[in-house]
């Protein structure tokens, strides 16, 4: 039987969809398996071989993690740290990028090189110096201590600068003729045009900051200030580990990341490619 061109196209579309779905499922399978195991009892999880579809279904692991740990408090702290840090990074990087693109000043290239070179310094290298600084500022165990070292990053400045470079200079000239100052141009024209880039930056930062473990562990000393990743760490440490509880905690912890990603996934690609035209 000969297929019509339309039918061929349909078959191709479906085949492509099927392959993509299978690949997607393959990538996401650890999460799916983790989700299923989080509803199994510890006894079932201690059997060999493990069965994905075990005979038991229990919510006990979720009850355990919520009753044993102040997970909601940890989540609240994570969200506060993420929101403030992302806001600060976006504002600061927009201002810095604007200066690098639309202002002319001595040593501009050198300064930008310095900013970019900070991207090559691994975070671990500056942990101790940052810690000592935060300690001397009496910011241990405060939101300020959690947030301050992450408020500025070379990556964010670089990303925003790359996008601002794609904004035609004519826009700026026209705005200037119309009496628009630099701040007005930045916030009324440049930033609205950069929304996809800003959102992609925000998502990138969210994932990065939300998953931080060592820094929040270092600068916080009480459970009231702890973030979600440390909460999960509490479930993992020790000679007796309850895998069901760990998985339940991990599933709760990834929900915000998944929500953010679902809402912003289109912007990630747009944002990453938006600044890649002009260097």
């Amino acid at each position: 039987m000969m297929l019509t061109l339309r039918q061929k196209k349909k078959v191709k579309e479906w085949a492509g969809f099927l392959i993509k779905t299978l690949i997607g499922l393959l990538f996401v399978s650890p999460l799916i398996i983790g989700l299923i195991f989080s509803f199994q009892s510890e006894k079932t999880l201690s059997t060999f071989p493990l069965r994905v579809f075990g005979s038991t279904f229990t919510m006990q692991n979720y009850v355990n993690v919520f009753s044993k740990l102040p997970l909601l408090g940890f989540l609240k702290n994570s969200v506060i740290v993420c929101l403030v840090t992302i806001f600060a990074q976006i504002v600061i990087s927009c201002l810095a990028a604007y200066g690098f693109v639309f202002f002319d000043f001595p040593l501009k290239k050198l300064l930008f090189t310095l900013v970019v070179s900070t991207m090559m310094i691994p975070g671990e290298v500056v942990v101790i110096t940052n810690y000592v600084t935060i300690q001397n500022l009496n910011m241990i165990n405060t939101y300020a201590g959690l947030i301050l070292p992450s408020m500025i990053s070379g990556t964010a400045i670089f990303l925003m600068r790359q996008y601002f470079l794609t904004i035609p200079r004519d826009f700026k000239d026209a705005a200037t003729i119309d009496g628009c100052g630099d701040m007005a141009f930045l916030f009324r024209i440049a930033v609205p045009l950069s929304i996809p880039t800003i959102i992609s930056l925000a998502i990138y930062l969210f994932v990065q900051i939300y998953n931080q473990f060592f820094w929040p562990l270092l600068v916080t000393n009480t459970n009231e200030m702890r973030t979600i990743q440390i909460g999960i760490g509490m479930l993992v440490t020790g000679d007796i580990i309850n895998y069901g509880n760990i998985l339940a905690g991990a599933i709760v912890a990834i929900v915000p990341s998944v929500i953010v990603y679902i809402f912003g996934q289109d912007y990630i690609v747009k944002g990453m490619t938006a600044g890649g035209i002009k260097g």
């Binding site: 919520f66 044993k68 740990l69 102040p70 408090g73 009480t222 459970n223 929500i259």
Partner: peptide, 27 residues
């Protein structure tokens, strides 16, 4: 729809477990 479900799950968790925020591990 998927996002809505996730948001609902979060909301239900927050409401259902809101009373259990006493830090067991710490104090």
């Amino acid at each position: 729809i998927f996002s809505l479900i996730l948001v609902l799950v979060m909301a239900v968790s927050l409401v259902a477990c809101g009373g259990s925020s006493t830090p067991a591990g710490g104090n």
